[in-house]
């Protein structure tokens, strides 16, 4: 085990990480987040990055884009998704989404809609045959 002082630091940084996960949709800033961990901003940034491999800002962006990907599995308008995950500018959202997801939100939504359609109509395309056979799914014509 780590010395208790280090565990104490980890728990404080964890509070900040959980704060981001719970409040990503709000207009939170780094000072609020470091305040949550009771650290100076510099010390907080260093420990957060060392524990989670990302700065708090990068982590906040990653959480927002992950949540946006979930919402884009539905036909929700892009603007609505952008605001729902905490961005206040569609162009910033689109730029960051493209950077992390390697495609635009609109294309991602289209691709996911097509995948959902295929999953519904031809799910066996996504399942190794051995598993499908073991479960008796290959005998169901609807899945071909």
């Amino acid at each position: 085990m780590y010395p208790s002082s280090k565990v104490y630091l980890y728990r404080r940084v964890l509070n900040a990480k959980l704060f981001i996960e719970q409040h990503y949709a709000a207009n939170i800033n780094l000072n609020e987040i470091s305040g949550e961990a009771f650290f100076s901003k510099f010390h907080f940034l260093r420990i957060f990055k060392s524990a989670y491999g990302k700065t708090p800002h990068q982590y906040l962006t990653a959480v927002r884009i992950t949540q946006a990907k979930r919402l884009l599995q539905t036909p929700a308008p892009i603007v609505e998704v952008c605001f729902a995950v905490g961005f206040d500018s569609v162009s910033t959202f689109t730029m960051l989404f493209k950077r992390l997801a390697k495609q635009t939100p609109a294309l991602y939504q289209q691709t996911q809609a097509e995948r959902q359609r295929q999953l519904k109509n031809t799910p066996l395309k996504y399942i190794p045959n051995c598993f499908a056979e073991k479960n008796g799914w290959v005998n169901n014509r609807n899945f071909q």
Partner: peptide, 12 residues
């Protein structure tokens, strides 16, 4: 990764 309904009570 994948969540596909495979018939009553069955899901991949």
């Amino acid at each position: 990764h994948t969540d596909a309904a495979m018939g009553p009570g069955m899901r991949w």
